[in-house]
Nucleic acid binder design. Structure first.
Lengths: 186, 186
DNA sequence: TTCGACATACCAACCGGTCTGTATTACTAT
DNA sequence: ATAGTAATACAGACCGGTTGGTATGTCGAA
């Protein structure tokens, strides 16, 4: 794997786990096994440009991962619960959340960097659109599909925050169990 | 108002808006209109001790504010929507979210400081317990009440993240509209 | 005259970022 | 085919500014 890709992948995980400011440049470089020369060669604008690159990369990774799960499941409900299930087992195994969230980046950077905020917005939009497409397949109306998609995205991201605060995967488990109720047409 | 209280109130808002690391000590002192002497006089352990104090203070403020709304409304559904309504008008007025959330602190500090994580956990627990009590009043079973309370907390906090990313209050509006569905007994 | 409540000067460590040096690869002119 | 050159891909020393934190000084009230 080339240096640039390795940098992005390593940095993405660090940023997801601990946010932007908390991850120092030197620590980042050490984790990637590179030097400042390499960083500023590939990302002339420095740390923030790397962050944006990480968010774009995350967009593709996340899209691929989620769509993979979605194509293998029947309903949106089952798909959502499968996604949450993966998050739970990741969390129980590693003790930390990285793969599916970027809440730390959103909350920290939305007021600080407009490009970063925009990249986060696009990421959420992408996730919502995948949920939304599946909901339409399930026969939901366009309006309700987009509402429920947003609600799913929000509750999963919020659930992750609760997991972080409790240092446990139970909140996500509860979220997963309540989701069916949300899916009922009426 | 005495110095210590003023410090806590000012710092709380800053931490809520931008997280912990992003708020520099000097900036904090300037915003509070004090000097380092005062800070380290009242909080010998420094910045982190101040953060913990902010979280404890936030716990009381939030409890009071939410309970006030809850006592004035009939159902949990109406109460939750009223709380969200306040968040929306705050957001539309100030352009920034502070009063009801601490997601930036959770995601940034949960791995970094155990006391901070614990304080955040207690905060969420407190919020959930208020929702839960009202749900029990509404006749929900104990199990369902705590599940729904957690779900409400998560989706509101997640909705705030979406608002931050979109720089708009629309996500919370949608959340508010979908909540009734969640409340239906079945 | 002691003690709480600060103010202020100062500090080492660290921050993100720049600069210059160098090895390797790619291209090109003869 | 080969010598010359330019561009790429780093490495690592260095920089000014900022960080959180400390030590000492001041001053009014008890």
């Amino acid at each position: 794997m080339d240096t640039k890709t390795r940098m992005i992948e390593t940095a993405t995980t660090l940023f997801q786990q601990r946010g932007y400011k908390s991850v120092g440049l030197n620590e980042l470089l050490q984790a990637c096994g590179i030097t400042k020369g390499a960083l500023y060669h590939h990302f002339p604008a420095g740390k923030e440009e790397l962050l944006i690159a990480c968010l774009h990369s995350l967009n593709q990774t996340l899209t691929r991962d989620i769509e993979l799960v979605f194509h293998g499941t029947a309903s949106t409900e089952a798909a959502a619960r499968a996604v949450i299930g993966e998050m739970i087992s990741d969390l129980d195994r590693d003790g930390t959340i990285a793969g599916y969230t970027f809440s730390s980046i959103v909350s920290e950077m939305s007021l600080l960097s407009e490009p970063a905020r925009e990249a986060c917005r696009a990421l959420y939009e992408q996730i919502e659109s995948i949920f939304c497409a599946k909901l339409l397949e399930d026969g939901f109306s366009s309006d309700r599909a987009s509402s429920v998609a947003l609600f799913l995205t929000a509750s999963i991201e919020g659930g992750l925050l609760l997991c972080r605060a409790q240092n446990s995967s139970l909140p996500l488990q509860t979220i997963s169990n309540v989701i069916p109720q949300l899916m009922k047409e009426f």
